[in-house]
Design a protein around this nucleic acid. Structure first.
Ligand SMILES: [Zn+2]
Ligand SMILES: [Zn+2]
Ligand SMILES: [Zn+2]
Ligand SMILES: [Zn+2]
Lengths: 172, 172
DNA sequence: CCTCGCACGTTATAGAATAACATATCTTGA
DNA sequence: TCAAGATATGTTATTCTATAACGTGCGAGG
């Protein structure tokens, strides 16, 4: 698998979170990418960190730090909060995971290594979290900010609502 | 003072947070509007709630619930967290204040009563918080969401960066 | 081999938010 | 006017989230 191909992967990433798909393969690909990115960068994806990422990758949703901690400690890693927070902070710094401010929780990045400003779509019914393409959103935000002389460095864009399946279910 | 005039107030609201202005008058106007909106709606802006709003209106920044609580309790109101959280929750429900997810904090709405989707511009240096016009941002976000069948109900849009003054100071 | 840097683990504490219950006040209709 | 219900305020206790501070082990470079 080469490095900078299959842009199709990126384009469909958001949609996949809301539809049935071979998630085992999905998670496997992301993990492989994350490893490649880490290696290329000299960042050490140690056992706890890697396991934390795998846990986040189990589903397209966000997990609280303590939820991750419970999983890690059940597998022989440390039992105290800093264990989880350090692993998660590493993943966020490396762009392998994102923090969802609204939820005080974390979710695996679905296309690590690619520069992207993300917007998160959070289903209030099934709690699925999708990472949508946010470049146009970012542009609009920077325009609004620029109009008052504000320089945007980091943006938090999170939408709460209904995913396609839950929307359909609600309509029924 | 009539109700639906001076659209100029709205337009300059975001900019004001980042520039010198007669803030006493600024806060007074917002408070008056908040009272009018509450009255029109039959919502009870009781003493604690009103005082909480006044405290938030003291500056264009966000305050944590416990910071508000300290101020309230020093003035004879209750000393326990629910006192602050309940007042703040009321203000948020009524659209008189907003919660800033990134900061776990609250800020007064600068144009209560007017329907608006807000984006917040948070200066990482002086901690000023401005409420910018976010309709174009909202449109872009809904487009991105719609592309994958997601229906946006509420959006959190927060930018971290430098306000004009701090940007200038940093460049020096 | 030494040691410096980094990761990992711990204990302890800080910070943010809510559950559950008691009391008071306001509203409303008999 | 007064009883009943709804709303608001206050309390105690607990839960959830996050970080500070410190000690230990290990691997790379001298
Ligand atoms: Zn998947
Ligand atoms: Zn859903
Ligand atoms: Zn002002
Ligand atoms: Zn500033």
């Amino acid at each position: 698998m080469t490095d900078r191909d299959t842009p199709e992967t990126t384009d469909s990433a958001a949609a996949r979170a809301f539809s049935a798909h071979d998630h085992e393969a999905c998670a496997g690909e992301v993990l492989a990418r994350a490893e490649a990115v880490s290696a290329a960068r000299g960042a050490r994806l140690t056992p706890v960190r890697r396991r934390a990422l795998e846990i986040l990758l189990e589903a397209h949703r966000a997990m609280g730090a303590y939820e991750v901690l419970d999983r890690l400690s059940a597998e022989g890693f440390g039992k105290q909060p800093p264990v989880a927070y350090r692993a998660l902070d590493f993943l966020v710094e490396q762009g392998l995971a994102h923090r969802i401010a609204r939820l005080n929780a974390f979710t695996a990045c679905v296309h690590p290594g690619e520069a992207h400003s993300a917007a998160f779509l959070i289903c209030r019914a099934c709690h699925a979290v999708a990472e949508a393409e946010a470049d146009p959103v970012r542009v609009a935000l920077e325009a609004a900010a620029g109009a008052v002389g504000f320089q945007v460095e980091r943006a938090t864009v999170e939408a709460l609502g209904l995913c396609p399946s839950c929307r359909e279910a609600a309509a029924a």
